[in-house]
Write a protein that binds this DNA or RNA. Structure first.
Length: 568
RNA sequence: UGUCCCAUGGUGUAAUUGGCAACACGUCUGAUUUUGGUUCAGAAGAGUCCAGGUUCGAGCCCUGGUGGGACAACCA
């Protein structure tokens, strides 16, 4: 229990209000000093970066306090759920680097217990079967400012309720014919306390337990009890559940009524969900993007899903670090994607090997370099990590360089190639532009002619003149073609989903994906799916899962910071 | 004409529980650099939504405003 047990607790871990709440509980020795959290998704879709925040929060809380974190599927609604999702969710949580406590848990494993508790409430006169339609019940609910009215079935006898509830369970009624409701207070200022539904009838087989049940507990009657069954101490959820908290506690009080005081009593704590600019986070909108073919699927690299980020080249470390930097509070705000991008750059800067790849190639011919000659030049794999060593790169008379590394009429601050200008081909020689060929009709540059200075070879050079411009290049003869998918933000509006008179689809960035054929250095032929590289001076890229040695495919994770284009 | 929650540089979070506001991202300089990357040095930018109150002292406590958000699914 001694919280000061931590040796060298990393100073970097930010404190937040949940830590303070837990510290308070610990100080009062609540739950015997235990901390057990849980991540409780409903298996009805793919996880996104918002879930990742919650996952990181719950698991890091467990870590910090020497406790655990459960993974529990809140599978109380068979019409929306599928095993496909329970699989992908587990994969994503593991990929993020977390291990849940014991076996995966399922709400559906607790249905018997939940049923018993419902019976207990009926017996205590705290629940009743209502025969009214959904519309009728909704109408009687009142509004936030006006009290509701009581159901005519509210005062049925315990015996009748017991009988009806059992027959609901047996399948004697059609969906919608009857529901079980808690008897609380139709005049409560909290809408959720106005006799909320506990059970509804759903005749549809469940993805996991089949047709065992035809009545299913509602979220409110399930979640707190699930937490209680598992011995969860701190039930962390997002702000919109705040108004459910009184009900969460009320149900717990009811099932505990007459029972000995439990050693663990769970407590709900809410925090603000994650919002990111330039994207959408709602499941509905994400689904729309997939269904309308605006993206290629849930794992499209432009999607804010965990699988999309993974395919885009984001690392688990970068996402965890992001979650940490984002912090936890009760105030809702919008995080700048620039923060996410800086997290992946920071990680990849340390890890990714630098390679030469020309994304928009134009030929450069070195007129005084012997035809047919090939020279191997030695280049560093990662200047940030000497242990990564170096490799040999073939250099020859003709190389590809980036089209925008040449300008016919360049401003003085342009440190690149132009008539009469000298630049260094990184790792090789300095070259000076002597001529260029332009297509008379299109104005497009078709070739650049240079001479090289043999005295300037990298490493061995005795030449001391300063050459500011350094270009990446790939030998024409040795270049390998690769499909490169240049991904950019999916939306061109900061807040695509919060515009009054416009749909989020109105703000789709038409340039969110540009596919180009790049010329990459020969070593990349062996690149395997998910391998990550820095295309020197261009950005970070990863090998797509569909890539093969015959057809290389790279995804742009994020561009390098570019203070030059900003200047323009 | 309800209840609850929230309010700190452009953005997101801190502030040892009352001692003249810190960190990260972003922005801007300069240096270094065989990546206009990285790294390093530095700068600008809030006086904590407003008005009162308590206090020697308030971003932290109290009152009242203002602004924003949540709540009326047989969803979670």
């Amino acid at each position: 229990m001694s919280k000061d047990n931590h040796e060298n607790a990393p100073e970097t871990v930010k404190t937040n209000f949940i830590h303070q709440e837990i510290d308070k509980d610990l100080a009062e020795n609540k739950n015997g000093g235990a901390v057990l959290t849980r991540f409780p998704p409903e298996p009805n879709g793919y996880l996104h970066i918002g879930h990742a925040k919650s996952i990181c929060l719950n698991f890091s809380l467990a870590q910090k306090y020497g406790g655990g974190c459960n993974l529990r599927f809140d599978d109380t609604n068979p019409v929306k759920e599928d095993v496909e999702y329970v699989d992908s969710i587990q994969e994503d949580v593991k990929w993020l680097g977390f291990n849940w406590e014991g076996e995966v848990k399922f709400a559906s494993d607790y249905f018997d217990q939940l049923y018993e508790w419902a019976v207990k409430l009926i017996k205590n006169g705290k629940a009743y079967v209502d025969d009214q339609s959904a519309e009728k019940i909704a109408a009687q609910k009142g509004t936030p400012t006006e009290p509701g009215t009581e159901s005519p079935f509210r005062n049925r006898s315990v015996e009748e309720n017991l009988d009806l509830f059992e027959r609901m369970k047996k399948g004697e009624f059609a969906a919608g014919e009857k529901v079980l409701r808690a008897k609380i207070d139709m005049a409560s200022s909290n809408m959720h306390m106005r006799d909320p539904l506990m059970y509804r009838i759903i005749h549809q087989s469940h993805h996991r337990i089949g047709d065992k049940w035809c009545i299913y507990p509602m979220y409110d009657f399930a979640h707190g009890q699930e937490d209680f069954i598992e011995g969860i101490t701190h039930s962390i959820c997002t702000l919109e559940f705040e108004v459910h908290r009184p009900l969460y506690n009320w149900f717990l009080d009811q099932i505990l009524d007459g029972e000995p005081v439990p050693e663990r009593r769970t407590r709900q704590i809410e925090f603000a969900r994650l919002n990111l600019n330039y994207t959408v986070m709602s499941k509905r909108k994400l689904l729309e993007l997939v269904q309308k073919g605006i993206v290629a699927g849930w794992d499209d690299p432009r999607m804010p899903t965990v699988s999309g980020l993974r395919r885009r080249g984001y690392t688990p470390e970068s996402i965890r670090n992001f979650a940490d930097k984002v912090g936890v509070a009760r105030r809702d705000g919008v995080i700048d994607v620039a923060l996410l991008e800086s997290c992946i750059r920071e990680d990849l800067n340390k890890k990714a090997s630098r390679v030469n790849a020309v994304v928009d190639p134009v030929k450069l011919i070195i007129t005084n370099y012997p035809e047919g000659q090939v020279e191997m030049v030695d280049v560093i794999n990662n200047p940030e990590d000497e242990s990564k060593g170096s490799r040999q790169l073939p250099f020859s008379r003709e190389v590809y360089i980036e089209r925008d590394d040449f300008m016919e009429d360049a401003p003085k601050k342009f440190f690149r190639l132009g008539p009469g200008r000298e630049v260094r081909l990184k790792g090789a020689y300095a070259v000076t532009c002597t001529d260029f060929k332009k297509n008379a009709e299109t104005g497009e540059i078709e070739g650049i002619y240079c001479t090289y200075d043999p005295e300037t070879k990298s490493g061995a050079t005795t030449v001391t003149r300063k050459i500011k411009g350094i270009l990446h290049w790939v030998s024409v003869e040795h270049a390998v073609d690769a499909e490169v998918r240049m991904y950019d933000r999916l939306y061109n509006h900061e807040a695509p989903s919060s515009q009054k008179d416009a749909d989020h689809l109105d703000f789709i960035n038409p340039d969110s994906l540009k596919i180009v054929t790049a010329k990459v250095e020969p070593s990349l032929k062996d690149a395997k799916p998910l391998d990550q590289f820095q295309f020197q001076r261009v950005g970070y890229f990863c090998v797509d899962k569909d890539s093969t040695s015959d057809k290389l495919i790279f995804n742009r994770t994020v561009a390098l910071k570019d203070s030059w284009s900003k200047k323009k």
